[in-house]
């Protein structure tokens, strides 16, 4: 076992300069510090142990689990699992996305006609025109007879309110 003398001899050998220095450090303390420290620590320690005792067991368990979850390693693990679940769900649902054309084909012509009649005012005619231009096909099917078309145009012209038309001009 090393004695204090051994320790001082070692220092003297290593650095005579340091071994001659006064070891006073200049640190001071408030008066009666250590007496107060004992009492203060005891008071805090006892208060803490009392508060731990009064916490119900279930509450303690929940708070332990909660604290464990927020440990960096655990939080990282949970975040990774959550990310995998979201990615997997997205991946497997990708194939079952709704195909609008398939859905449309399941609607009967009668249902479609009825819908168009009921919502004619809501339909965006410009959009229809754009689709017609973009697709390179005629919006008006060729199966419609010219005579019927002419009749439709005539009817439309008759329906035009002259006053409204003037306002538009």
């Amino acid at each position: 076992m090393e004695s204090r003398k051994d320790i001082r001899d070692e220092l003297n050998e290593l650095s005579p300069l340091l071994s001659k220095l006064d070891k006073g450090e200049g640190f001071q303390l408030p008066p009666r510090y250590f007496e107060k420290l004992t009492l203060e620590v005891l008071q805090k320690a006892k208060a803490e142990s009392t508060s731990v005792e009064t916490v119900p067991q279930w509450q303690q368990t929940i708070s332990n689990i909660w604290a464990a979850i927020w440990q960096p390693k655990m939080a990282m693990g949970l975040a990774t699992i959550a990310l995998l679940v979201v990615a997997t769900t997205f991946f497997f649902n990708k194939g079952s996305e709704v195909d609008p054309l398939a859905e449309l084909s399941s609607i009967s012509d009668e249902e479609l006609d009825f819908y168009i009649q009921e919502n004619f005012d809501e339909l965006d005619m410009d959009l229809f025109a754009d689709i017609n231009d973009a697709s390179g096909e005629n919006f008006i099917p060729s199966s419609i007879d010219d005579e019927i078309l002419n009749e439709f145009y005539q009817q439309s012209i008759d329906d035009i309110d002259v006053n409204e038309f003037e306002e538009l001009l």
């Binding site: 220095l21 006064d22 006073g24 450090e25 200049g26 640190f27 001071q28 303390l29 408030p30």
Partner: peptide
Amino acid sequence: LAADPYFDGDQVQLLLQ
């Protein structure tokens, strides 16, 4: 240490610190 009211070391002590 200069701001610590509980330090009154001399120059050598400060140098050592």
